[in-house]
Design a protein around this nucleic acid. Sequence first.
DNA 1: GAATAGGTAACAGAATTGGTTACAAATATA
DNA 2: TATATTTGTAACCAATTCTGTTACCTATTC
Lengths: 154, 154
Amino acid sequence: MNTRFAVATHILAYLAHNQGQPVSSEVLAGSAGTHPVVVRRLVGTLREAGLVQSQRGSGGGTLLARPAPAISLLDVYRAVRETEPDLFQVGSTNPNARCDIGRVMQETLEDLFGPAIEAMHAALAAVSVAQVTEALSHRLAEAGCPGTAAGATG
Amino acid sequence: MNTRFAVATHILAYLAHNQGQPVSSEVLAGSAGTHPVVVRRLVGTLREAGLVQSQRGSGGGTLLARPAPAISLLDVYRAVRETEPDLFQVGSTNPNARCDIGRVMQETLEDLFGPAIEAMHAALAAVSVAQVTEALSHRLAEAGCPGTAAGATG
DNA sequence: GAATAGGTAACAGAATTGGTTACAAATATA
DNA sequence: TATATTTGTAACCAATTCTGTTACCTATTC
């Protein structure tokens, strides 16, 4: 997954800050420190998940599809990840063998760590994009970055 | 991290099963379904962490440096990972800028998810290599793989 | 029709990963 | 001592992934 989760959260926090007005991928990219196409790719993923809407054409851009308090970080996480964190991934499993020890090991580890994963999911579900925006604003204010809120560039 | 954690756990479970006798990287690789050099690399990491010992030369191999119940999966996890799961990793941060929003975002996410990470660590700490070996044995017995325990090949 | 902005394909460079070969160093044993 | 065994490690390759970038098409507004 790498930076996608953080960048997606960044984008959503920005959109929450600019609620109502569509924001262009160029502006979002400037704020997140990446390329507009990267933003569009990510926004595409978030759109498929029903978290944002996009408007083409002049004056267009992206905006939240739901109120910021109704979008949890678990929503973002699920939208953005391709796979569960590869903690338990076993390399060369042999799915045909009934007694494939690799598969059995993987199942065993998943059983042993399932509760930990669930705990992480619960923690993600407990935080909304609105809370992220608020926390960001507080931090930026403490650092003495006036007026930046979620919208600082670079 | 990918498969390293699972393979390392596999290796340790095998060593726990063969307690006292050194096991060669070739045997371990056969069981884990990988290459002996991959095993040696991983064993080197585990050795640096004080979890295993190795003996060179004929009849040599690797054995646990501590009793299996005294090795937790958190020990393995910490030995094997290079970085914390890259959930919170922000790509192009600009560490020089005091108001770098990327860094602030990262700090904010780390604050928000810290408890979830700690919960995962606690769950890992609660499981010992001995328990993994035992769980593996049960699973293999259920699947009808007689005598394999942690030592099945491939 | 022109300007703006998203959608998407395609490609490049970097980084990571896992497998493999090769070889030196250490150790047990004949 | 000589040989076989085994670890330690460097080096390399192929595959994958990730990010950035360019290019071009489509949609929308003015």
